[in-house]
Amino acid sequence: MEPILLLGLILVGLIAGVLGTLFGLGGGIIIIPCLTIIYGFGATEAAAVSLIGIIAISSGGTAFYLRNGIANVRLGLFLEVGTTIGAAAGALVAAYLDDWFLMLLFAAVMVFSALRMFSSAGGTDGRNPDGKHSYHDFKEGTDVRYDIEHPKGGFAACVAAGAVSSMTGVGGGVIKMPVMNLGMKVPIKAAAGTSSYMIGITAFAGSVVYFLAGAVPYVAAAFVVLGAVIGAFVGTRVSKLMDFASMKRYFSVLLLFVAASMVLKVVGVL
């Protein structure tokens, strides 16, 4: 591979790292399209590289969220049980469904989430002065307290999120964020940190399979990881300076962009 293309892989990882950390996504929605469309990677190779890049993004970003008590580890572990079970079930079901159906399903989920996020961008942020959970907001310089609502519904949604993410091959952060923020009323920064923590664990389970099967293109993965580490570092610093309302709006736009890309791919334009 040409040196300029190898350096481009660092850029792919860097962009995925920044956006992934800011919005609590894995970064797979950036890495997979770039590797398949620009670099011509096969779906399996792209998924393997993406999952390893996701780990680099998730781990670097999660470290910040954990150090400052923003990520809710107990909530993440609780939801991860459902996500992992759903992912296993989804992988089995996916074998019997057509690709176009799965892609449209995921696009519909993202459009719904984006519209919900955007419409509530300036509304409630889940704060409750008497809440049991809390984190420190660096921008405001105050402790933010909140409660977790509808835990059973959130668990069920994460089972579905795990199934949908394994069926579509994209990280589940794009679903977990709206579930936690809109459904469970977790403030978006806490939801982003918790989602980041969960994504790393899920990505490990997937990537280790590719690794053991010898399906990892190591050189490409290496360049993406280097970019992702830098991107996650930058993303966490930017995250400290942003307010939740603008984060919701940016996240909504990103969801609509990815949804439109998936629909265009289904109809053969991309």
Binding site: I55, A56, S59, G60, T62, A63, F64, Y65, L66, R67, N68, G69, I70, A71, V73, H136, D143, G200, V225, L226, V229
Partner: peptide, 21 residues
């Protein structure tokens, strides 16, 4: 304010850094 799981954060941060190195 230091999070309850800060040690896990250190493992994640330096694990990735060591891997990247």
């Amino acid at each position: 304010m230091r999070g309850e799981f800060a040690a896990t954060g250190i493992v994640l941060k330096y694990g990735v850094y060591v891997g990247a190195a």
